[in-house]
């Protein structure tokens, strides 16, 4: 059974159609790239999956259920912008995650934080942007979730931090979980993806295994994306 399903999923903001009757299934155990230009509907889809928005039409299902309290306990979400209060210390954050999520593995998070020499007393506001992103990702990936929704996890960090973040994703997601990564930095993520979804103007224009793109078209996902989204 798919872990993530969209059925005729539609979202309107006033007259603007952000998602237009989208149908989609994602199976467990897959790492999927949700790729599209700015304003294509990527973030809208992720916010709908989190219950931060409600569909105008159609529905979205996570493990067969509409987003709500129950799905929040199996979905680990990394928002595009930080949602952690910046006065909080690492220690408080760990406590917060432990209280919020039953599937949070505190030891795993601690081990990763120690490895980066981040002290428990350090506060978010004292951290560099790169460190803040890493800490957030560590917390999100330390949950034993069934679905990880990562909205632009590597946007705005330097290449070394990018590698760290991608490695942390590969090394920590639950094998039976699905990971959805929304990004426009395709070249950086493509070697870790099983499938890609190209989204544009609220439509899914392609949902293909990465191997197929390379085998049948002889090109990288990045090259295909550039071709299909060429600006005239």
């Amino acid at each position: 059974m798919p872990i993530f399903t969209c059925e005729n999923l539609t979202k309107r903001y006033g007259p603007v159609l952000a998602l237009d009757h989208v149908n989609l299934n994602i199976e467990p155990g897959r790492i999927v790239g949700l790729l599209g230009p700015n304003g294509s509907g990527k973030s809208t889809m992720i916010k709908l999956a989190n219950g931060l928005l409600t569909p105008s039409e159609g529905r979205i299902l996570i493990d067969g259920k509409a987003p709500g309290v129950e799905t929040k306990s199996i979905v680990s979400y990394l928002p595009e912008r930080t949602y952690l209060a910046d006065w909080m210390s690492v220690k408080q954050l760990l406590k917060f995650f432990q209280d919020m999520y039953e599937d949070f593995d505190r030891d795993r998070a601690l081990a990763m934080l120690n490895h980066l020499n981040i002290a428990e007393t350090q506060r978010i506001k004292q951290m560099s942007k790169g460190t803040r992103e890493k800490v957030q990702l560590i917390l999100v990936m330390s949950r034993r979730a069934k679905l990880y929704l990562l909205d632009e996890p590597i946007g705005g960090v330097d290449p070394a931090a990018r590698d760290y973040i991608l490695n942390t994703i590969i090394g920590n997601y639950e094998p039976n979980a699905a990971v959805i990564i929304s990004t426009h930095l395709i070249a950086d993520v493509e070697q870790m993806l099983d499938e890609v979804i190209f989204i544009n103007g609220g439509h899914i224009i392609r949902h293909t295994p990465v191997d197929e793109i390379r085998e049948q078209m002889g090109m990288s996902v990045d090259a295909l994306f550039r071709e299909e989204f060429k600006c005239f």
Partner: peptide
Amino acid sequence: VRVFAQEAGVNPNT
């Protein structure tokens, strides 16, 4: 598989 995948920077399925 997981560690090797991490080392290569590829998906464990790959």
